[in-house]
Simulated assay, not measured.
Amino acid sequence: MAFESLADVVRATEGLPEVRIVGGHMAGLLLAAFPVGDLVPRRTNDADAGISTEVAGTQVVHDRLIANDYEPEGGNRLVKGDRAIDLLVPSLDGHFHPLTVGGRAYDATPGLALALTGEPIVIDVTVAYLDEHEDRFDVPVPSVEAAVILKASATTSRSAAKDITDLFHLLSIRNDFGDTETGGWQLDQTPLIGSRRDAARTLHLIADRARKSPLFTEAEVPPAAFTALVREYVTAP
């Protein structure tokens, strides 16, 4: 269901500028494209798409999903049976909050503006379903650095082990594959500004508390390894 939702939202945003698939699919597909050791991409149960306010204002994505039998389910979420898609727009004040664009409500998300303006990593995805049919489509996701910033921002609005898992996977990709192949990396520069500075502050705070955090136990992420990655690749604020 999650991959069917992904395929639907990819096709609903086809040909539009400043669109990135984010959330759990973003983290899972990046780890599939850049495999690290024995780390296994975690599963998700919906699809999240980040779109610019300009794209949101046209309502074209919403209209295409409605034409594909999706129905609004409060705010920015659309559903079709067991499929679910969330549409997100950038937050320019560093905070999560509802934002009305073109008469429709969206979740404004910190770090998304950087992800939308940077070059995407386009992943050629083939999904093999259990009924033996296949589907193939190209998925634009943010760079690994932008993905880290988005996931770091997510931890400021919720306490979830899945975000620790995703951050560890993304930082491990940076460690194993470098910065060129993964879309560039500026989180280790000085000084950091804007969403990079905010993410660095959050990441170092998580690392400082890692050994005592029950989230790391739930996520099965080694605190020492996570802390080492943060201190190696992210400038301390």
Rank of each mutant, 00 (worst) to 15 (best):
D8N: 13
R11N: 12
G15E: 05
G23Y: 06
G28L: 03
L29V: 02
L30R: 03
F34G: 03
V36A: 08
V40Y: 08
R43H: 08
T44L: 13
A49Q: 00
I51K: 00
V60T: 15
V61T: 07
A67V: 02
Y70E: 03
G74A: 09
N76L: 00
L78M: 15
V79H: 03
K80F: 08
I85H: 06
S91Q: 07
D93K: 11
D93F: 12
H95E: 14
F96R: 10
F96S: 09
L99G: 00
G103I: 10
A113I: 07
L116S: 03
T117D: 14
E119P: 02
P120T: 09
V122S: 08
V125A: 06
T126S: 13
E132V: 07
H133F: 14
H133E: 13
F137A: 09
P142Q: 13
V144A: 11
E145T: 09
V148Y: 04
L150D: 08
A152H: 11
T156K: 12
T156H: 05
S157E: 11
R158T: 04
R158A: 11
R158W: 07
S159D: 12
S159N: 10
A160E: 15
A161T: 06
I164E: 05
S172F: 00
I173E: 01
R174T: 07
R174L: 12
N175R: 15
G178F: 08
T180L: 11
W185T: 05
Q186I: 04
D188T: 06
D198W: 01
A199I: 04
A207V: 09
R209N: 14
A210I: 09
R211L: 10
L215E: 14
F216S: 02
E218Q: 15
A224F: 08
R231D: 15
T235N: 05
